[in-house]
Simulated scan of single mutants.
Amino acid sequence: MTIYSGYIRQPHYYETDQMSIIHHSNYIRWFEEARVDILNFLNLPYQKIEESGIIVPVLEVSCQYKEMIRYGDTIRIDVFVEKYTGTRLDFCYEIRDTNECLLTTGTSKHCFLNKETQRLVQLKKTVPEFHKIFAEYAQLQNKIHEK
């Protein structure tokens, strides 16, 4: 298993304000785009998760703006599994420019629910192959960040 290399993006003009600065509301959308991308990277696209009868709602999201991002910039959104428990999946995000300057950080917290009952599920019991992927990837990321 390899580490996700990040989601590369160029802001669109419609995402800016009058000063060509990215409007703050777009960062949450960008986090979602990057989250979808890392799930695809892990071969666990939302479609596959939902077809298994599981949904992954957002419980909480945060964003800290450190530097402005402007129209025309190229950014990379790094996504890390901050915490995985089998019922919860928390991500953290770092947005960097091409010079590796940290521009924005954020988090999102999620849980796994049965699509029909809306009840919390334990992936280890419900879909063990998904649990194995999330657990192994979280462990791999933790080893790399400890170095």
Rank of each mutant, 00 (worst) to 15 (best):
E67W: 09
D37H: 04
A34M: 10
G53W: 00
E33N: 13
L59P: 00
I28M: 09
D37Y: 08
I38N: 06
K66T: 07
C63G: 09
I55W: 01
F41K: 09
P45L: 00
E67P: 14
C63E: 01
N43P: 13
M68K: 15
E33F: 11
E32C: 06
K48C: 00
L42F: 06
R29L: 13
Y27G: 10
M68T: 15
E50W: 02
F31V: 10
P45F: 00
E51T: 02
I28Y: 00
E51C: 09
M68S: 15
I54H: 00
E33G: 01
V61H: 04
V36S: 12
E50C: 04
K66H: 13
V36Q: 09
V61M: 10
V36L: 13
A34I: 04
L39I: 11
I54Y: 00
I55T: 07
Y46C: 04
D37N: 06
I54E: 09
I28V: 10
K48W: 11
I55R: 04
G53L: 12
Y27S: 07
V56R: 01
P45E: 00
I28C: 01
I49M: 08
R29Q: 14
V36R: 02
L59T: 04
E67N: 13
M68P: 15
V58H: 02
A34S: 07
N43F: 13
S62W: 07
P45S: 08
P57F: 04
L59M: 08
C63K: 06
E33I: 12
I54R: 07
Y65I: 01
L59K: 01
E50R: 02
L42K: 10
R29V: 12
E32N: 02
E33H: 12
N40C: 15
I49K: 06
W30S: 08
N43Q: 15
E33Y: 14
K48S: 05
K48T: 07
V56N: 05
E51Y: 06
P57M: 01
P57A: 06
L59A: 06
F41Y: 15
Q47S: 15
R29W: 10
V58Q: 01
I55N: 02
F41W: 11
Q47M: 10
A34H: 03
I28Q: 03
E32L: 01
I55Q: 02
E60V: 09
E32I: 07
F41T: 12
D37K: 03
E67L: 14
M68R: 15
F41N: 08
D37S: 12
F31T: 03
E51L: 03
V56L: 05
P57K: 05
L39Q: 11
L59H: 08
F31K: 01
R29K: 14
G53C: 00
P45D: 07
S62Q: 02
E50A: 03
E32A: 10
V36I: 13
F41Q: 09
V58T: 05
V56Q: 03
F41M: 11
Q47P: 11
D37A: 05
R35P: 04
E32F: 08
M68L: 15
E32R: 01
S52C: 12
Q64L: 09
R35H: 02
L39G: 04
S52L: 13
V61R: 10
F31W: 12
E32Y: 07
L42A: 13
I38K: 11
Q47L: 13
D37V: 06
I28T: 07
V61E: 04
I28G: 01
R29D: 11
I28P: 07
Y27P: 11
